[in-house]
Amino acid sequence: MQKEKCAHTWQMVNVTPCFIITEKCYHCGKISTYFSTGHNPPMEEYREGEHYWNFMESAQSIHFDLKCTKCNMLVKFDELLGVKMCTGCDENCEANTLLKKLEPERTWVYIAFGCLPVNEKKQLSKEKISILEEYFNQRRKSSKSRIKVISHEIVSNIEDCYAEVIKDVDMLSLTLPEK
């Protein structure tokens, strides 16, 4: 006997404010990104394996998991650093091809990105990406337009991608707006 499959209804849970920290290794040029719950990133260069990381930037964001309100299934999103909207910044990128194809029906491509460097840190699975897509589309309810969530692995060069990241930069800066 096969169990009846749950048509999950996802809800955002375990929402934790945090900082996305960006560091760069000047020896190999690689960029490292990760979550931090405090605002005390290591400011001095430090060594990790073959890398010498230097602090570059921090931005406020959130970490969250998804939970089904019907069957209570919990899906952890520890590998998800954030989502960004593909704006078609690179003609030769597959994300752009997808956007061009889906744009007429108002389906928008969002890139779920994990921690950098891509091949040195655990990345989101295909299943989790489709759950994320399901979640955001459930939130759009009645809307005819849809969201397509893709993995950053599809992006031809994630370090050169100008997609619009959903995060809060400069929340601590005091730059006065122009009068």
Partner: peptide, 12 residues
């Protein structure tokens, strides 16, 4: 900022 568009579009 430009990324307000990204957020507004995602949540519809």
């Amino acid at each position: 900022h430009k990324n307000t568009v990204s957020a507004a579009n995602l949540i519809n």
